[in-house]
Structure formats: C-alpha cells, structure tokens
C-alpha cells in the first residue's frame, strides 16, 4: 500500500470539496471491501482516501411510501435485515443475500458495489429491473441518473472526480408482482457470479430482465422484455424470450467460465428466473432467498 493521507469529513459538502481539491488523486471509502484490496494490490495509489463513514446523512435507509432511499453507507447486511426491503423490494433483498458472506456484507455497501462497477456486481441486475435511480451529490447540487445510464464499462461509471453517490432510490411497485435473482457461481460458498440474472413479472404481464457478469457492464434485455409484454409464459414463449435475452449479452471467457458456457447458461437461467418470478407472483413459488441453482 502506498502512503496516503486520510480524511473523514462529517458533511457531504466537506467531502465534495476535499474530493474536488484532490481530483483523481483522491479515492472515496465506504466498506473498503473493494477499495482496500485495490490499495493493497497497488493498482491504485491515491494521495488521499476520503472516508465517507463520518457523514450521518448517508446512513439513511428509509421508505417514504413511494421510494426506498438507500444511503451510500447502507451495507448489504442492513438491507437483508430490513423488513421493508424484504417485503417491498424482494429481488434486491434476494440479490443482497448472494453477495460474498456475512463478514464482508457487514461492511460492503450497495453503493460501493455499483461504484466499483465490476461486470459481476450482484446488486446491479436487481437495481436494473427495479428501475433504480442513482442520486449523485456534486458541488453544484444533487443530480439523479437512472441506473441504466450509470455504468459505462468494466470498472467505469459516469462519475467524475468531485461527484459522490449519495443514495440509490427505488420506486415501490404498486402492482402485484414477482421477481427473482439467480446467481450462478462456481459453488454455493462465497463466489463472484459467472452469470447473474434478475427478472420481474407483474400482473399486467409486463416483464423486466437484467444480467450481470455476461457483458462489459450490467445490462437490461429490452428486446426480450418487449417481446414478452402481455404474453403468458408458455414453453414456446419462454424459449423465444431466452433467445432474445441472450442477444443482449456479450460474455467473454475468463477464469470463472467460458464465453460459450455463459451464453448457454444465461438462456437456461432466464427461463428459470422468469418461471420463478411468475410462480412467486402467483403465490406458489419458492420463498425469496431459496437456492434456485
């Protein structure tokens, strides 16, 4: 680890001004489960690390009747322990449970997860199917960006030095729905996703499908969603939807899986996820959090 300075601002504006001052020589710190590993590897060598854990307003985890606000300090275990998340945002809840293991989740935050923007970020598909928005604090005020626009590429987001993600916002659905997140890892223990698929189905036969780990950034499968709109999930429809869905992805071969396997299994898992989501909407699916692979 290189030598760096450490700041722990207590207000967001203080954090922004320090961040502005140092520009790309500064790094933001939440749980550190990505950042400290990168520091240790020497792949980043900042002049200063700005710890956001002193800022109280970022601790917010609140449902205001319409939106769920997930402050950037909220950890995955806090999401898992939240009744409102479990009840109203079950896909995010299910996805949170697949992240690492409890000792990591006690520190790892959802915001850190999307800001790291690794293609396998487990929270991303859930956020994509829920149409989440990212609230970014800047020195000229807050701005809100749909999650679909937030990711730019592997480990790249739209954020610029001086910009700090304040919270992630998700609107609660007022329709009857079911959803699921399936993470395929090499095994059941702590692992990064080979493929991650989230889907949501609602009573109006509207569908949402998103993937992680199979494209340079987490993606929605819009064409498949359009195709499915208004349709019942017959076997033929599922087959066709899976075919269209995998058109949205462009997996690579890496140490975790080959491109071919990822392509094939993405199709399998889309179908499985859609069926599960439908069954859950109808009240006869497996419980949220139950293993689906």
């Amino acid at each position: 680890m290189n030598d760096f300075d450490y700041a722990k601002p207590v207000t967001l504006s203080e954090a922004i001004s320090t961040y502005k001052k140092y520009g790309d020589k500064a790094r933001l710190l939440l749980g550190g489960t990505d950042l400290v590993v990168m520091l240790d590897d020497g792949v980043i060598q900042p002049d200063i690390v700005i710890d956001l854990k002193g800022i109280d307003e970022l601790k917010k985890l609140e449902f205001d009747g319409e939106f769920l606000h997930i402050g950037s300090r909220v950890t995955f275990n806090e999401l898992i322990d939240s009744e409102v998340v479990k009840e109203k945002f079950p896909v995010l809840w299910e996805a949170s449970k697949t992240v690492a293991s409890t000792g990591v989740r006690n520190r790892a935050t959802l915001v850190g997860n999307i800001c790291s923007a690794v293609p396998s970020a487990d929270s991303a598909p859930a956020l994509l199917v829920c149409n989440a928005a990212v609230v970014i604090a800047t020195d000229s005020g807050d701005k809100e960006v749909p999650i679909t626009e937030f990711f730019v590429g592997p480990r790249r987001t739209i954020l610029k030095p001086g910009e700090i993600v304040k919270e992630v916002k998700i609107r609660a659905s007022n329709k009857k729905f079911g959803g699921s997140y399936i993470k395929l890892g090499r095994y059941d223990g702590e692992d990064l996703a080979q493929v991650g698929v989230a889907t949501v189905v609602n009573e109006d036969r509207e569908y949402a499908i998103a993937f992680c780990a199979v494209a340079p950034k987490p993606v929605r499968a819009k064409e498949a969603e359009e195709f499915l709109k208004g349709k019942d999930l017959t076997d033929e429809v599922l087959e066709e939807a899976a075919k269209l869905a995998v058109k949205a992805i462009s997996p690579i071969s890496d140490i975790r899986a080959s491109k071919e396997y990822r392509l094939y299994v993405s199709g399998v898992l889309v179908k499985r996820s859609l069926k599960t989501s439908l069954a859950r909407m109808n009240g006869n699916g497996p419980k949220y959090g139950e293993r689906l692979v």
Binding site: R186, Y187, D188, G189, E190, D191, L192, I255
Partner: peptide, 10 residues
C-alpha cells in the same frame, strides 16, 4: 477468489 476450496455450504 478464483481458486475455490470448499466452504461449509459446499
């Protein structure tokens, strides 16, 4: 991370 030894779940 990429050399997987069994965990209690496996």
């Amino acid at each position: 991370t990429d050399y997987k030894i069994p965990t209690a779940l496996d």
